[in-house]
Design a protein around this nucleic acid. Structure first.
Length: 180
DNA sequence: TTCAGGATGTACT
DNA sequence: GTACATCCTGAAC
């Protein structure tokens, strides 16, 4: 699923406006056997409850006290797994995205800002106004947040190690990060 | 472009 | 009390 989502369009309807981004980088968290996964060992708490829902729900959690990261649940009751969205690219709504990130219109951003709008999981959620109010959202039936069906991406899919999971012992070296 | 340091809240031990 | 699926700023290179 982490591979299949690359190149797909994520749609966010909020405040009467529409934002669309292309998914460029994802990470897989494969459930109870994955030491980097919040549901490792079958851990089931108020926070992780959504990971046990059927695939297609939104798992959103707070990290480092200030960033809310967006994941798409992919497994189900017996397989609490998901995909983290790490990086995206603008398809539609560049001024809204720029306002959400830097409080300015796109044309008045510095070159550095333009190149750093959506290149991190916390940045993507800030740009799309995704927060825990969307926790558990059914992405199949929601009008606020969903993924469009589409062709496979034209570019080559590369794989690497996941980011910032040094605590995860052998799992930190799994090649579960995928990017275009 | 790289680096150190700080901001910040919650889950879990 | 500790760690955390991060990002920003400002200064050095």
């Amino acid at each position: 699923m982490a591979r299949d989502l690359l190149g797909k369009h994520l749609v966010r309807n909020v405040g009467g406006e529409q934002i669309i981004v292309e998914l460029r980088e994802t990470e897989a968290y494969t459930g109870i056997a994955d030491k980097a996964c919040h549901s490792y060992g079958g851990r089931r708490t108020q926070r992780t409850e959504t990971m046990y829902k059927p695939g297609g729900h939104a798992y959103i959690y707070l990290i480092y006290g200030m960033y809310e990261l967006f994941n798409i649940v992919t497994g189900g009751e017996e397989d609490p797994s998901g995909v983290l969205v790490r990086v995206a690219a603008i398809v539609k709504g560049r001024d809204i995205i720029s306002q959400n990130r830097f409080g300015k219109m796109y044309d008045s951003l510095s070159a550095y800002q333009k190149n750093n709008l959506l290149n991190g999981p916390g940045k993507v959620t800030r740009a799309l106004k995704i927060d825990k109010s969307l926790y558990g959202t059914d992405l199949v039936n929601s009008r606020e947040l969903y993924v469009l069906a589409g062709e496979n991406p034209a570019g080559e899919i590369k794989a690497g190690k996941r980011i910032n999971i040094d605590y995860a012992e052998e799992a930190k070296d799994y090649l579960y990060r995928f990017y275009l």
